[in-house]
């Protein structure tokens, strides 16, 4: 903890967005959503709009519902028995993703995800990247080769692994593994990349690399990142949403949230008084 704090303070201000971002077109419209795990309500009337090609950070103490909301966006919560969106809609480009006509497979191709614990498959680096493409039936070798290079370059991993594409992805270091997972996610060219605390298991150096990567990816993808680390949200996001006890407390430009929060709870949290 100490290391991280000192590290963060030494590099603070590195990439806090300087200009207040203009309002872009809405990509994901979370419209008054209530969410339940069985009988217990995890999200209360969440209402927020995620803009296209922006980095939106979800912050808040443990159990505040930020990961739950993130996993609603590609319907990963469907995997858990007894979960349901009881009220409201989540619309991506105007389409309610919980509508029965929506194919969850198509949704997840468009909304990729990077997990808290890096989870490269126990296959080669090459196979990890091409996994999603092969699912779609793409098997042309030169086509796959091109995507592998492009994705690995996109994830700033190409130079480190180009000579060992056919060795196991599990032989990489923790930070490389997480970037491999990012490369794997961008290989299928989603519109949105969801990141669920992508750096929580990484050391400070690897964290910097992933954060720098996020800065590059924001030009091509819409990124939603859940983080425990407030400095991380401050460094890499355009917009920040603060959650507490399953409620959205405040959603604004990241600068505003950290410099001039409108809500007293937000202020208490970002200044480290609780959470």
């Amino acid at each position: 903890m100490d290391i991280k704090t000192s590290f963060n303070s030494s590099s603070s201000g590195r990439s806090i967005p300087v200009t207040s971002s203009p309002v872009g077109p809405t990509l994901i419209d979370i419209d008054h959503v209530d969410f339940y795990y069985g009988a217990s309500q995890a999200l209360h009337d969440i209402n927020l709009k995620i803009e296209e090609k922006k980095v939106t950070a979800f912050i808040g103490p443990s159990g505040c519902g930020k990961s739950t909301l993130l996993r609603c966006l590609n319907r990963m919560n469907d995997l858990i028995d007894g979960t349901r969106v009881a009220k409201g809609q989540i619309k991506i480009r105007g389409i309610n993703i919980y509508d029965p006509s929506v194919d969850v497979i198509e949704l997840r191709k468009r909304v990729g995800m990077v997990f808290q614990k890096s989870n490269p498959f126990p296959k080669s680096i090459y196979e990890n990247i091409t996994y999603g493409l092969r699912l779609q039936g793409r098997s042309n070798k030169s086509d796959l080769d091109a995507v592998v290079e492009k994705s690995l370059r996109g994830a700033a991993l190409w130079d480190e692994v180009k000579d060992r594409l056919h060795t196991s992805g599990l032989g990489l270091s923790g930070g490389q593994q997480q970037r491999l997972c990012i490369a794997r996610a961008i290989a299928v060219e989603p519109e949105v990349i969801l990141m669920d605390e992508p750096c929580s298991a990484l050391d400070p150096i690897a964290t910097v690399k992933v954060e720098e990567l996020i800065q590059e990816l924001r030009t091509k993808f819409t990124i939603v990142i859940v983080t425990h680390n407030m400095q991380q949200a401050a460094r890499c996001s355009d917009k920040t949403a603060f959650f507490y006890m399953g409620k959205l407390i405040e959603f604004a430009d990241t600068r505003a949230i950290f410099m001039n929060p409108a809500n007293a709870q937000t202020e208490a949290y970002v200044s480290g008084r609780f959470g």
């Binding site: 590609n74 990963m76 995997l79 497979i105 198509e106 997840r108 191709k109 990729g112 995800m113 997990f115 614990k117 989870n119 490269p120 498959f121 126990p122 996994y131 999603g132 699912l135 779609q136 997972c181 794997r184 996610a185 299928v188």
Partner: peptide
Amino acid sequence: VPKGFREGSLALGATKWQTIRKN
């Protein structure tokens, strides 16, 4: 088999059966 393999595969747009069979 770690849950992460399943989630990772599903998040890439695999069906459940593809996930089970390949991963």
